[in-house]
Design a protein around this nucleic acid. Structure first.
Length: 284
DNA sequence: AGTTGCCCCTGCGCGC
DNA sequence: TGCGCGCAGGGGCAAC
């Protein structure tokens, strides 16, 4: 579910509510979200007890909390993960998987995840950049992102431009919603061969990716339902600004043609049939 | 080596 | 009312 804007909204909430606090206890209520910690849930909890959270960082859709001593708590929300800051007296969420208590007795941190595609792990020495996510490309909102390197790499991809946008080793943070939104803004169908984009077209597409991600962060992300909320349980409202995703049959905001839905990699793609014409088959 | 497909999970809404 | 099916903001890994 969460893409870069949603994860960034969560990160800023963690920066505000969790950074600077010392973990007093960790309870793992379901082992699956901690599956990447090979030593097991008990070891995971023991290793975090007493550690101070020093920062809240993000690359693409990954989050990490640098801890005193140089390690980091690395997290990914998967399709349905949430980080909630919750007073201890509140009724726990049905899908609460991991609970963190702090030594100040203040609100707890709850990792909630219905589908459990997300997870938490400890990255040894991973405060600056966890080794586990070294294979992920920078995201387009961080200074390390190299626009021209991305444009060149995109134009070498022997695949459709949407698949390329979703390739986290090429550009991170873009998921199914914002890929469709950026392609709509660029007037490109997702099946357009990436290696046939002109350099200027690739640069324009990157600009649209950056613009839509930035606009969505301002709105606190996209919330279709209760599965995505910020650390205080509040929804984002970028959904009202979506132009393509989830708008099948509704008029294109540019030309009023009904938005089309096509199946794509076990999911869906939304686009305007007129503004984003399907490419002709590749002639080899 | 680069690209594609399958699988991991739970729950909800729809049609029969 | 009940059940089966399709679908959902992601990513790792095996197989071509």
């Amino acid at each position: 579910m969460p893409e870069l804007p949603e994860v960034e909204t969560v990160r800023s909430g963690l920066a505000k509510w969790v950074v600077g606090r010392r973990i007093a206890a960790v309870q793992v209520l379901h082992p699956r979200p901690v599956r990447r910690h090979v030593a097991g849930p008990d070891d995971f909890a023991a290793a975090l007890k007493g550690r101070v959270v020093e920062a809240a960082r993000r690359r693409g859709k990954f989050l990490w909390l640098p801890l005193d001593g140089g390690d980091a708590l690395l997290g990914h929300l998967g399709m349905s993960g949430q980080m909630l800051v919750s007073p201890a007296e509140h009724e726990p969420h049905r899908h609460l998987r991991v609970r963190f208590d702090f030594d100040d007795g203040g609100p707890q941190l709850h990792f909630v995840d219905q589908r459990m595609f997300g997870g938490l792990s400890i990255s040894p020495g991973g405060a600056a950049l966890p080794a586990e996510i070294a294979h992920i490309a920078p995201d387009p909102l961080e200074p390390a992102f190299d626009d021209e390197a991305f444009v060149a790499a995109l134009r070498r991809k022997r695949t459709g431009v949407k698949r390329a946008l979703l390739d986290q080793t090429l550009i991170s943070g873009v998921g199914n919603i914002y890929a469709d939104e950026a392609l709509w803004r660029a007037g490109l169908h997702g099946e357009r061969p990436a290696d046939r984009l002109t350099r200027p077209a690739a640069r324009r597409l990157l600009g649209h990716v950056r613009d839509v991600l930035t606009a969505a962060i301002v709105d606190g992300g996209t919330s279709f339902d209760a599965l995505y909320v910020n650390v205080n349980g509040e929804s984002g409202y970028f959904d009202v600004s979506l132009a393509a995703y989830g708008r099948e049959g509704r008029p294109c905001r540019r030309c009023a043609t009904p938005i089309r839905r096509e199946s794509f990699a076990n999911r869906s793609s939304f686009s305007c049939p007129k503004c984003q014409p399907k490419p002709r088959a590749r002639i080899v």
